[in-house]
């Protein structure tokens, strides 16, 4: 962990309905949980299926109280949709890390749908969590026919 050991780490996923925000946050919460952390996750989805703004907060550490990240304290902000960056940027703490699709070589994605997994790959570089835990969780969250494409997307993000 490249964060102080006893502090809560705040990771917010944001985007529009249908861009895989909730799925990415589910996988991330699962990964840190498997890695032995206390974790809480909260999400706000208006009518997300119908293209509205979606946000999902994951907080982990040794002790986590509120499942919602307080204003301006995101350590990581993962935004799946370029148009949403300015809407949510205020949530980031001053030295926090912003990850957007611009950080991914999207042309090399096995499918546009796998962007959220590639973004997880990019995020994964910031944590000392064995690579295998990420791959295990990815497999648990997708049907088998998508495993290879997701592994490729994850590697693309992790190595970009």
């Amino acid at each position: 962990m490249k964060q102080p050991a006893n502090q809560t780490v705040n990771v917010r996923f944001a985007g529009l309905g249908g861009t895989g925000v909730i799925k990415a946050s589910d996988i991330f919460a699962d990964v840190v949980f498997r890695a032995g952390h206390m974790v809480k996750k909260a999400e706000v989805h208006g009518m997300s299926q119908r293209g509205g703004s979606v946000q999902s907060d994951v907080r982990f550490g040794t002790e986590v109280h509120s499942p919602m990240i307080p204003d301006g304290t995101c350590d990581f902000l993962v935004v799946m949709e370029p148009t949403q960056v300015e809407v949510v940027r205020g949530g980031l703490r001053s030295n926090g890390v912003l990850i957007t699709p611009a950080d991914i070589a999207t042309a090399k994605l096995p499918s546009a749908k796998a962007l959220n997994v590639a973004m997880l790959g990019r995020l994964s570089r910031h944590f000392d969590i064995p690579e295998q835990v990420w791959y295990d969780s990815l497999r648990a969250h997708f049907p088998e026919k998508l495993h290879a494409a997701n592994a490729a997307a994850f590697a693309l993000g992790r190595n970009s």
Binding site: L16, G17, G46, M47, S48, Q49, R50, G51, G52, S53, Q55, D71, T83, Q84, E86, V87, V88, G90
Partner: peptide, 12 residues
């Protein structure tokens, strides 16, 4: 504090 407005949902 007023949060910036996100995108409202719409019919698919």
């Amino acid at each position: 504090p007023v949060a910036p407005r996100g995108k409202p949902p719409e019919l698919c």
